[in-house]
């Protein structure tokens, strides 16, 4: 299997594509989680579905870049709607999020059904964006993903200090003259890129887990943001590759769910067994303290 990774065309694409996804969503997910915006990724991912369908209907093309642009525009539209509604109405953020997410996704499913019933010979395969189908990744897809991912990571590397400050204390950042809202929009746009990278592999429905899971697991092992970003990338890549390989070994399993299940294993392991913050150790420590008290 390991040798096949480098020789088999499909396997190589699958492994590269899902590793890329894991790295990018792991890093960006850290900022989303630390800013308590985990569900924003969920809304963005669900919003991508109608974007893909509209892009296909307008162009008749299934070229990855076309669909990705559609997804990005829809994600951007959903975020703008969301932030405006939270600012201008008295609705709470979670209510607005739920409405926007369901509306966009419902619209996407309607369009998807419409497309699959149409006479267009080119229509097959759009439904893979629901749960992902890594086996269908071709070299061109992986190249697109690689370019997008590299661009997103380059921005994070360049603005690491600014993003850290924004995530910790946005108001202080603004008082220093950094445009908090602009940086926030930029960070959200980068999350849209992560979502777009994950569309073919994980699909829109489970993409949020891919953003949140690696970050939550990584936070358990470290108290430093830099280390957390790297760990999240490693966890994301590991679950992406292992999930995708399992799914490819039997092409009938959609990739998304398998990747998310591998990720869940990492998250649970970290929640229970990470040295300082793990539940197991803190329970043992508490027991010991209680025992010591009794002895004294």
């Amino acid at each position: 299997m390991v040798i096949e990774l480098f020789t088999d065309y499909t396997l190589r694409n699958v492994a590269l594509g899902s590793a890329l996804l894991g790295i990018v969503s792991g890093v960006l997910g850290c900022f989303a989680v630390l800013r308590r915006q985990g569900l924003l990724g969920d809304a963005l991912a669900h919003a991508a579905l109608p974007g893909i369908c509209v892009a296909f209907l307008l162009t008749g093309s299934k070229a990855p870049l076309v669909l990705l642009i559609g997804a990005a525009l829809a994600g951007w539209l959903a975020t703008t709607l969301l932030l405006t509604a939270v600012r201008e109405t008295r609705l709470s953020a979670d209510s607005v999020l739920a409405i926007v997410l369901s509306t966009f996704f419902g619209f996407g499913i309607v369009l998807l059904t419409f497309i699959s019933k149409s006479e267009n010979a080119n229509q097959a395969g759009l439904d893979k964006f629901l749960f992902g189908q890594a086996a269908t990744l071709i070299a061109e897809d992986v190249q697109t993903m690689g370019l997008l991912g590299a661009a997103a990571l380059a921005v994070v590397a360049g603005l690491y200090k600014e993003f850290k400050l924004l995530a910790f204390d946005a108001e202080f950042a603004a008082s220093l003259g950094f445009p908090a809202r602009g940086l926030s929009v930029l960070l959200t746009s980068l999350i849209v890129i992560a979502v777009v990278i994950g569309l073919q592999t994980v699909g829109v429905v489970l993409m949020a887990a891919m953003l949140i899971g690696p970050a939550v697991a990584a936070r358990q092992w470290t108290n430093r943001l830099g280390v957390m970003l790297i760990l999240a990338a490693v966890f994301g890549a590991a679950s992406g590759v292992s999930g995708a390989l399992i799914s490819v070994s039997d092409a009938h399993i959609p990739t998304g769910p398998v990747i998310i299940l591998s990720l869940t294993a990492i998250v649970l392991g970290s929640l229970f067994f990470a040295p300082a913050r793990g539940l197991v150790w803190s329970t043992i420590r508490r027991r010991q303290q209680r025992a010591n008290m009794k002895v004294e």
Partner: peptide, 24 residues
Amino acid sequence: PQRSSVDWDFPTHALDVVMMGTYG
């Protein structure tokens, strides 16, 4: 700012927070 305005479980250490004062 008010101390309660930030999440103190943020993954960073005291010196790093103080260095943020130099970012401007």
